[in-house]
Simulated assay, not measured.
Amino acid sequence: MATSTRPAEHPGYALLIAAEPSVRHPLAVAAMLPQLAAVPPARLVGTSYASAVQLANPDDPNTVLTTVRTAAAVEGPLLVYVAGHLVVDTRQHRLHLALARTTARTVRYTALPWHWLATELQHRAPGTTTVVADLAADPDVWQSLVQQEQALDGPYALYGAVQLHDRRHRPSPSYTHALAHILRTVPARPTGDDLHHQTARAARVEPTATLWLGPAPANPSPPSPAVDAHQVDVPAPRPEPAQLTAPFPAAAEDPHRAISEASQAGRHAEAGAIAAAWEQAALRQHGAISPEVAHWIEVRAVIALEEGAPDRACELWLRGAVVRLTAGQSEIHPEVAAAVDRAHYAWHRVSDLARARELGTELSTLRTQVPGKSGAREDVQRRMADLSRALLP
């Protein structure tokens, strides 16, 4: 019997690299690698067949280079996952991925230069290479990326996140966790952009301390069922300087109105994506500690409350208040007081007792600085005492 044939699809290839420097552990990437490795390689790459290679805590940059070179030689689609801590060689001012033996003094000899990765991938066919990165960076390196003095771009589609690591921010590999969960549970693998959007929305990261790699998070999903359609109490619009490029074109003219309309229609994920995108723009324009960034954090808090997540709303309003205070606004500033009062309001609607106690601890601390109306501090103290008794073993 005659059979027709068609050109065979080249198999895909996934290279998973996760490294933790020995002297610090900003990201527990080695522990997360098995979650990603458990995803079928074909699902990782987006082909009908694929193979995968893991490098867990490599300690020699030349060994990593050899493995990257082997991966770059495959003809089919290639996905390179890179997770760990970004450092800079102070002599050449080039980005490196810290490996297992990397210290501050040995970056040049024990870390993987990022440009090696770009160089090895530059000869591949256009559109066949994807790099997914879940990274952390110290303040100087992170700021250089935010200000585009350094870049991770190359001859590939780049997705992922770089989180700030300092005394106040302790990043976690939540982008990897969300990515693995989505790839294991969705019925069909999304496109690269859509997969990044979904992962960014699901990852539990600090927005003001996260630089997204790839397109800004958006909401490609269909609208969710409508909820009570009352006007969302979005904080008053903050004027944006003319030079600030709109990060979410659909809401470029009036993001507050777009957020309100989306939330009224029950499209809370869309509303949150618009607010998060403008928060990222404010971060780049004004810095992480600024009233402009606090404003968009508070907008996301309103959306969270509308969505029925009072714990997240409380957390965001508390964060907004802290950003405002750190930015120099006084304890009696109306916007500071409003943020703490709204956090207090949302806190009383948190039904999970352990979570309420956790949030209440931070609220109690803020109430010592921002007492609010008469009896507000005492109210926090009473509920915290009730929660402590309820949670006794």
Score class of each variant (00 low, 15 high):
Val232Glu: 06
Thr245Asn: 07
Pro291Trp: 00
Ala390Asp: 12
His10Val: 04
Ser263Gly: 11
Thr361Asp: 05
Leu164Thr: 08
Glu20Ser: 14
Val45Ala: 12
Val107Arg: 13
Ala50Glu: 13
Ser260Gly: 10
Asp379Arg: 11
Leu15Ser: 00
Pro126Asp: 02
Ala18Gly: 14
Ile332Leu: 03
Arg108Gln: 12
Gly375Trp: 06
Ala252His: 04
Leu152Lys: 03
Thr368Cys: 02
Arg108Ala: 13
Pro241Ser: 05
Leu65Cys: 00
Arg43Met: 01
Leu353Glu: 15
Arg201Lys: 14
Leu152Ala: 09
Gly272Tyr: 05
Leu117Gly: 07
Thr208Gln: 15
Thr210Ser: 02
Asp233Val: 02
Pro155Cys: 02
His115Asp: 13
Ala273His: 10
Pro26Leu: 05
Arg189Trp: 06
Thr103Pro: 11
Leu164Cys: 04
Asp89Trp: 05
His85Gln: 15
Ala242Gln: 15
Arg204Trp: 06
Tyr109Leu: 12
Pro255Ile: 01
Arg382His: 13
Ser22Phe: 09
Ala133Ile: 04
Gly375Ser: 01
His169Cys: 05
Thr368Pro: 03
Val336Leu: 01
Ala104Gln: 13
Ala288Thr: 10
Tyr156Ser: 05
Gly76Lys: 04
Thr129Met: 00
Leu359His: 08
Thr110Trp: 02
Arg312Leu: 09
Thr110Glu: 07
Gly214Val: 07
Met1Thr: 13
Arg257Leu: 07
Val162Arg: 01
Gly287Ile: 00
Gly76Asn: 07
Ser51Asp: 10
Gln264Tyr: 07
Gln231Phe: 06
Ala151His: 14
Ala28His: 14
Val88Gly: 11
Ser260Trp: 00
Val131Trp: 01
Arg238Gln: 06
Thr326Arg: 15
His165Thr: 08
Gly214Asp: 04
Asp153His: 05
Gly76Gln: 09
His177Ala: 14
Gln92His: 09
Ala301Ile: 09
Ala125Arg: 13
Ala38Pro: 03
Arg167Gln: 10
His169Met: 04
Pro34Asn: 06
Thr210Gly: 01
Trp347Ile: 09
Arg312His: 07
Thr90Leu: 10
Gly375Ala: 10
Thr103Ser: 12
Ala136Tyr: 00
Gln264Met: 15
Val141Ile: 12
Pro171Leu: 00
Ala72His: 13
Asp59Thr: 11
Trp296Thr: 08
Gln150Asp: 08
His348Ile: 03
Val162Trp: 00
Gly320Ser: 09
Val227Glu: 11
Ser374Pro: 13
Ala137Thr: 00
Ser351Asn: 05
Ala200Pro: 07
Ala202Pro: 14
Ala73Cys: 01
Ala200Phe: 04
Gly266Cys: 05
Asp341Ala: 15
Ile274Met: 02
Ala216Asn: 02
Arg349Asn: 12
His25Val: 08
Leu117Lys: 03
Val132Asp: 08
Arg377Trp: 10
Arg124Met: 05
Gln198Glu: 08
Leu183Pro: 13
Ala313Tyr: 01
Pro310Ala: 04
Asp138Val: 07
Ala37Pro: 06
Thr130Ala: 12
Thr119Asp: 08
Leu213Phe: 13
Asp60Phe: 05
Pro249Arg: 00
Pro34Asp: 01
Glu335Ser: 13
Ala73Pro: 12
